[in-house]
């Protein structure tokens, strides 16, 4: 799609999120969480371009969330905590990436899963430090030096989430069109040829991996700051699976997919949990099945197809 169309769509989407948050105040929190997850899913999308599925990216999300929880007492400022947490996540992403970028397909997916589960059990077992399953409460933090009311703070976090989503969305869009992004999808179809062109395939994958960890870190920090409570559940393998689910639901064809998917997922979950508490998992499963079978382009793909058909009609 053209840059202009993407820009208009971005503005419309942001306006929609803000309007909905204003009209239904308790959705403000839901949407902040959704966008935060969308940031992590954007990283999943990058790796999907290389044909790799990480079943462990909740590691970076939860790691950043815990960095916020641990550091908030010492650095009670959102605009310092968030970058700090994201940089820690990216650094661990670099270390882990040096190792996992040697593997492909099922091995790549399972190694990520395994490492995230190691982190989960550390969070769960070292009670002295992490308070185990009880989790840690995040103290009140200032925003740009100002201590806001809870209501103002939730607006501030939503707007911060939107700014990050737009910023990373635009960056990833450029990245995918750049030689690095192009090599990423080349790695999926003919990795061996890359080496014969002088392109180090592993380093291409590693770069995307670190970026994905960084974005997941931003998402995790936002989640910790919004929920003000972190628990090991953030690192549990189902949380990683959820990110992959959202990626497929939203569609990997566009940087809009992850956010569309995350919003649809969180909103559906919120309402479904209230209406049909027991059937929620079943709804999830059915939706996933339908998307994979009938709309491999995800919600984004469906939306696009509708627009194209509308124009032709």
């Amino acid at each position: 799609m053209s840059r202009y169309a993407d820009l208009v769509l971005t503005l419309l989407a942001a306006a929609f999120v803000l309007a909905l948050s204003w009209a239904v105040p308790w959705l403000r929190f839901v949407m902040t969480i959704a966008i935060a997850k969308g940031l992590a899913v954007l990283g999943i999308l990058l790796l999907l371009r290389a044909g790799q599925v990480s079943f462990g990216h909740a590691l970076y999300l939860s790691l950043a969330a815990y960095v916020v929880a641990f550091m908030a007492a010492r650095i009670p400022e959102v605009l310092l905590l968030l970058p700090l947490a994201a940089v820690v996540a990216a650094s661990i992403g670099l270390l882990v990436g040096l190792f996992v970028s040697r593997y492909r397909a099922i091995f790549f997916g399972m190694l990520n899963l395994a490492l995230s589960m190691v982190f989960y059990s550390m969070l769960d077992k070292f009670y002295e430090v992490t308070r185990g399953g009880d989790g840690i409460r995040v103290p009140v933090t200032s925003f740009a030096g100002v201590v806001l009311s809870p209501d103002q703070q939730s607006w501030a976090l939503l707007i911060l989430a939107l700014v990050l989503a737009v910023g990373f969305g635009a960056f990833v869009r450029l990245y995918l069109l750049s030689p690095m992004g192009s090599a990423l999808s080349a790695l999926k179809t003919r990795e061996a040829r890359l080496e014969f062109m002088g392109i180090p395939a592993r380093r291409i994958l590693l770069s995307a991996y670190v970026l994905s960890a960084f974005m997941a870190g931003c998402g995790g920090a936002l989640i910790a700051l919004s929920t003000r409570h972190v628990t090991p559940a953030l690192a549990y393998w189902t949380a990683s699976g959820e990110l992959v689910f959202i990626a497929i639901l939203g569609g990997a064809g566009s940087v809009f997919g992850p956010f569309l998917g995350a919003l649809a997922y969180e909103l559906t979950r919120t309402y479904a949990a209230a209406l049909v508490a027991d059937a929620w998992q079943m709804i999830l499963g059915t939706v996933l099945l339908v998307v994979i079978l009938f709309a491999p382009g995800g919600l984004w793909g469906i939306g696009r197809a509708l627009v194209v058909r509308g124009r032709q009609a």
């Binding site: 960056f171 990245y175 069109l177 750049s178 090599a183 999808s185 179809t189 061996a192 062109m197």
Partner: peptide, 29 residues
């Protein structure tokens, strides 16, 4: 050994990029 999801022009451009400067995340291929 082609990159199957790329166009012919992109396949060749990637080779040029490999030669001239691959590591730019925001400049288009």
């Amino acid at each position: 050994q082609l990159f199957l999801e790329h166009t012919v022009a992109e396949n060749v451009a990637l080779a040029i990029a490999a030669r001239e400067g691959l590591w730019s995340p925001i400049r288009p291929l």
